[in-house]
Amino acid sequence: MHREDPQPDGITRFAAPAGGEAASTHRRSLRVGIGGPVGSGKTALVAALCRVFGPDMGVVVVTNDIYTTEDADFLRSAGVLSTDRISAVQTGCCPHTAVRDDIAANLDAVEALEQAHDPELVLVESGGDNLTMTFSRGLIDVQMFVLDVSGGDKVPRKGGPGVTASDLLVVNKTDLAPHVGADLAVMARDAAAVRADRPVVFTDLRGDPRAGPVTDWLRLQLAARRGARTT
């Protein structure tokens, strides 16, 4: 933030908050939105990403879900995130509004964590309302949408901005597919049909706790960001 010299009366004058207007390429961090229905595995994915990226680049997390000490304990006990690196935003019963229409509280939370920890990766997690979930580009740089196969293999066909417009579609809990009668090939085909060339990955966090396909994609995003900053 631009800060002017103290005035003769001792008052320091401040510029108004930049509010995301500052060119995102001047920022060190990559801000990543993680959306998807409740129970699809967002928090487990966040834990996986913290495990993979935390040691090298510092990760902070803003959560828009109803956040209890139990949730904090989950991340802390997994040894992936200290409590001072996670911030919970209250969304007034309208989680979608807080990440799309009125991102003020999320921006404040993100900026405070960035100021305190200077991370390279910022994860903003929200359950949103449903498949229409999408993050404002004023809040995040890229976004992923997490589905799980037990929601039914027809979900990608339904579309909605979360499924069609997210930068990465993650179909999680593939290990459950045989048990719930979900056809992964159908999900892949339907997702490809509504997503043009945007990528879709399939994950099973129980079999692959480091979420390989997601971390591979995220590495590319981080590299692209570093490239954009240095050119």
């Binding site: 933030m1 004058r13 401040f14 108004a16 509010g19």
Partner: peptide, 20 residues
């Protein structure tokens, strides 16, 4: 939060007196 909106929609020198 409101200052963030006002500073971008109706920028004015007086806003710099208000603090962060």
């Amino acid at each position: 939060a409101l200052l963030r909106v006002v500073g971008r929609c109706w920028p004015a020198p007086v806003l710099s007196w208000l603090g962060e």
